[in-house]
Design a protein around this nucleic acid. Structure first.
Length: 894
RNA sequence: GGGCGCUUAGCUCAGCUGGGAGAGCACCUGCCUUACAAGCAGGGGGUCAUAGGUUCAAGUCCUAUAGCGCCCACCA
């Protein structure tokens, strides 16, 4: 094809371009000792469903970084994969089986259920990777991983075994978070706290000796059946006479002791607190301290009352509460009630109220593991860098307060715990294989632990399990540690901290240097996108509508690191329009590079080009942009960098350069045309390279229409994806040309402004008088621009002292003023109004500068160049003001 | 109870190390000018939440206050 299609329609080429990249292995990262590695391991999307807008943002940011670094010559590896998401997926599969096939999980064997789960995985895992491709993710698909593939399984077992052997994984009977709906334990991080409207009920526990006893407050009366003591503070005189004695659990015959414990706070409630070790985290600790019965369980796994609750056995916990309170009230034990807001722990998956429960579970001892992870992020000498920095504090706080991590889950979908129990003596053996003989009793029958591991256990290994750990693979050697971990701040606790301590433990080195945290994508109204609200927007639909490039650009610009963003239709459209703009500008350029037979016309090169001012001007502008954009990217300021590329393309290249160069392209100076063509395509190519990380498809597509760049070993197909990132050269600043073009722009804008305000049609040709004492030598250079862009026939230059013509409209610029004589009478009223406005503005500027310059402190303390700059400005504005006033006076005198 | 973020044009948001307030959308005016009406040209609109402080100089740094939002915290 000779040129780009008339309209920008991304559907026509995005898939084709992606397939071409894959076919040519453009995303493949190779171990190359001559290159520096740059590694990003993709946060594996859960296979629970399809990708949402948050993934699109996450992956766009990663792809921008990877593509940029790849162009910079790094061996850039972006390793993709998916997460089995143990509990989340299991819930989905159970739901699906019930809904579609009427199958109850309980009616299936473990193996049968897992078959269904794997089927689910195949379906959604495939969908997800398809979506990544649609987005343009430049992942090395050869290295794609899944948290439950063979290698990851091995890594998980190895990690568990090593931790166990170090005594950092242990099994213990402790109180844990239990979700009665998912029927599994949860880690602390998986429990969400929501404020709910609750009540305190104050109940009197009569003393065993018949005296009044103690009144306690509770928000959970149904747990009273599990009470084993009442605790008061040491030295609390209200209750000291009862310490050591017993009180009666109302309406039962159970006597429980009154003890003193630091947990009791005289300020809270009545100062006396009931102790229910089996159903409360704190009470459990109190129970341990005092050797109380810890197994006094009155609520079972399904949140139903046990036989301890007597006649309430089998009743739901909340129904029991109602009935029990009523019974107590009628019996006269209820002293009072109080409405109160209670932070209730609930399951992060199903939002059922958590039931603390004593249970035999596996734990990771955190203290020792957390220590080096804390050290790594410390301000002084820390190796881990948070972007933005403020998350460091949150990370540190969480790690310093961390408790042991409960990792066993009563689920089927996940990594089964590699622990085996001897059938005869119950001895536990942890290892990769089922033991053959019990080392303790000689038994030969074993059964494996039924539980699976918390899904985050395997996620924690992701930065190195994906590279081959525990084998010492070349990949691991070369690509570890990862350079950047890009993820949402919402999983800092769940995931980032776990990768940190796991990485340090397994590899002896932090898993990544930077943690780049982004915000959430919210809907137009600022609400979180969620299934239940139904306000989610499908990235695929958007891509189908406006293309992946527009979506990516919209997501990556106008944002700042770590802050949430909104998904705005208008912003999306403007991104699409930008792509369209680039498309058309490129079409213009290509049109001027080729003849009717699709052959490139003669073009200058680096050596033969004779650059004109506008050539040097745009080269300088882009050169400056290269520096700023690269600096921004280094600082992870992707939004700023993207904005700057946008401005270079739209404002600089399209609005000015193309317009300035048009005259030459349509002229008849063949040699100059060669230069114009050369600069037109050379600068476009630089812009395309700068934009490529943001909009990979359109830039690659346009690239193929431009004169081919020399092939290199790294880039045998001359693809833009493999092109070098532009470099800044101080030699390209071209100050003189830049100044002349800027002056020309000022004059052109002034003329346009006059015409618009005076309602003079822009198409009408005019003559122009430039009054200035410092522009004469510049005129030959800038004259063509002015003539071409604002339809000026003749330009006359005169001194500011010369007598000015009458019947003119005027405007000031930094070197003087311009006058436009008009045939018809000028409306002096409008003219004066316009000049008055100009005058007011200039007066403001002059005043501000003069105030600054008359400040002794400024003169003496501000840097010399700042003062000098300010002086120059003052002079300029004063001159301009004077010019305007002269003009005004002459108008008014008429 | 702790911690954090936000407050800038009608709307949504940028503004990184302090030195003349920006973008997109919306709005007003004029243009189908041979790359682009998904466009071109011009224009209006902001005491940068409030009060103090540091500084020659504060949207930018410090302190307090208010409103909004988020996170953490063992439901006496």
């Amino acid at each position: 094809m000779k040129n780009l299609a008339k309209t920008y329609s991304p559907k026509e080429f995005e898939d084709r371009i992606y397939a071409m990249w894959e076919e040519k292995g453009a995303f493949n990262a190779e171990i190359d000792k001559n290159k520096k590695p740059f590694t990003i391991v993709m946060p594996p999307p859960n296979i629970t469903g399809e990708l949402h807008m948050g993934h699109a943002l996450d992956q766009t940011l990663q792809d921008i970084l990877i593509r940029w670094k790849r162009m910079q010559g790094y061996s850039a590896l972006w390793l993709p994969g998916t997460d089995h998401a143990s509990i989340a997926t299991e819930v989905k599969v159970v739901e699906k089986l019930k809904k579609e096939k009427g199958i109850d999980k309980n009616d299936l064997t473990r193996e049968e259920f897992l078959e269904h789960a794997w089927e689910w995985k195949r379906k959604y895992g495939g969908k997800i990777t398809e979506q990544c491709r649609k987005l343009g993710d430049s992942c090395d698909w050869r290295r794609e991983r899944f948290t439950m593939d063979e290698g990851c399984n091995k890594a998980v077992n190895e990690m568990f075994i090593r931790l166990y052997n170090e005594g950092l994984v242990y099994k213990g009977n402790r109180i844990i978070n239990w979700c009665p709906s998912c029927m599994t334990t949860l880690s602390d991080a998986e429990v969400e706290h929501e404020d709910i409207e609750g009540k305190y009920w104050y109940f009197r526990y009569p003393a065993a000796d018949g005296s009044e006893g103690i009144t306690i407050a509770t928000s959970r009366p149904e747990t009273m059946f599990g009470d084993v003591a009442i605790a008061v503070a040491k030295g609390d005189e209200r209750y000291s006479h009862l310490v050591g004695k017993t009180v009666i659990l109302p309406l039962t015959d159970r006597e429980i002791p009154v003890i003193t414990d630091e947990h009791a706070d005289p300020e809270k409630g009545t100062g006396a607190v009931k102790i229910t070790p089996a159903h409360d985290m704190n009470d459990f600790e109190v129970g341990q301290r005092h050797g109380l019965d810890l197994s006094c369980t009155c609520i079972d796994e399904e949140a139903k009352m046990t036989d301890l609750a007597g006649k309430y056995e089998g009743m739901d916990r909340y129904e029991c509460r109602k009935a029990w309170v009523k019974e107590l009230e009628e019996a006269g034990y209820l002293v009072k009630t109080e409405d109160v807001v209670i932070p209730l722990g609930s399951c992060y998956r199903c939002h059922t109220a958590i039931e603390p429960k004593i249970s035999d579970q596996w734990f990771v001892a955190m203290k020792e593991l957390a220590e080096p992870a804390i050290k790594a992020a410390e301000v002084e000498g820390g190796e881990l860098i948070h972007v933005p920095k403020r998350f460091e504090k949150i990370y540190l706080k969480w790690l310093t307060e961390i408790k042991d991590w409960c990792i066993s889950r009563q689920l089927w979908w996940g990594h089964r715990i590699p622990a085996y129990y001897c059938e005869s003596c119950g001895e536990v053996f942890v290892g990769h294989e089922r033991p053959s003989v019990c080392a303790k009793c000689g038994g030969s029958e074993f059964h494996q632990d039924e539980d699976v591991l918390d899904t985050w256990f395997s996620s924690g290994l992701w930065p190195f399990s994906t590279l081959g750990w525990p084998e010492k693979t070349p990949d691991l050697e070369y690509f570890y540690p990862n350079t950047v971990m890009v993820t949402g701040y919402d999983i800092l606790f769940f995931w980032v901290v776990r990768m940190m301590f796991s990485g340090i433990f397994a590899m002896g080195e932090i898993p990544f240097i930077y943690v780049f945290l982004h915000g959430l994508v919210r809907d137009e109204k600022g609400r979180k996108m969620s299934k239940s609200l139904g306000n989610g927007i499908d990235p695929l639909e958007v891509i189908n509508e406006v293309g992946a490039d527009a979506l990516r650009f919209m997501l990556a610009t106008g944002i700042s690191p770590g802050n949430d963003m909104r998904f705005l239709r208008g912003k999306l459209e403007s991104s699409r329009n930008f792509a369209n703009k680039l498309w058309n500008a490129s079409r213009f350029t290509i049109m001027n590079l080729k003849d009717d037979n699709d052959e490139f016309l003669p073009m200058a090169d680096d050596a033969t080009a004779v650059l004109k001012d506008e050539d040097r001007w745009i080269i300088a502008k882009i050169n400056e942009g290269v520096k700023e954009i690269t600096d921004d990217l280094e600082k992870f300021e992707l939004g700023l960098a993207g904005q700057k590329v946008y401005e270079l393309i739209w404002d600089v290249y399209c609005d000015w350069y193309i317009e300035l160069v048009k005259g030459r392209l349509y002229g008849d100076d063949e040699e100059d045309k060669k230069t114009a063509r050369y600069v037109l395509q050379k600068t476009l190519k630089t812009l395309l390279r700068l934009l490529h990380p943001y909009m990979p498809f359109i830039t690659e597509e346009i690239w193929t229409y431009l004169p081919e760049e020399p092939k290199t070993a790294d880039n045998p197909d001359s693809l833009i994806i493999k092109e070098n990132w532009p470099v800044y050269y101080a030699s390209l600043e071209y100050e003189d040309s830049v100044e002349r073009v800027e002056i020309a722009k000022e004059i052109i804008k002034a003329v346009r402004n006059i015409r618009a305000e005076a309602d003079a049609p822009p198409s009408r040709h005019i003559n122009l008088i430039v009054r200035s004492d410092s522009i004469a030598e510049m005129i030959p250079f800038i004259e063509p621009y002015i003539k071409k862009l604002v339809n000026v026939d003749n330009i006359k230059v005169e001194s500011l002292n010369a007598t000015a013509a009458e019947d003119v409209i005027s405007a000031v610029f930094s070197r003087g003023e311009i006058l436009i004589p008009l045939d018809e009478l000028v409306d002096i009223g409008i003219e004066i109004e316009r000049l008055e406005k100009e005058k007011k503005k200039l007066e403001g500027e002059v005043l501000r500068v003069e105030k600054k310059l008359s400040n002794q402190g400024f003169i003496s303390k501000a840097p010399a160049e700042v003062v000098e700059e300010e002086r120059a400005k003052g002079e300029k504005y004063r001159d301009m003001l004077e010019t305007v006033m002269t003009r005004l006076n002459s108008l008014k005198s008429k």
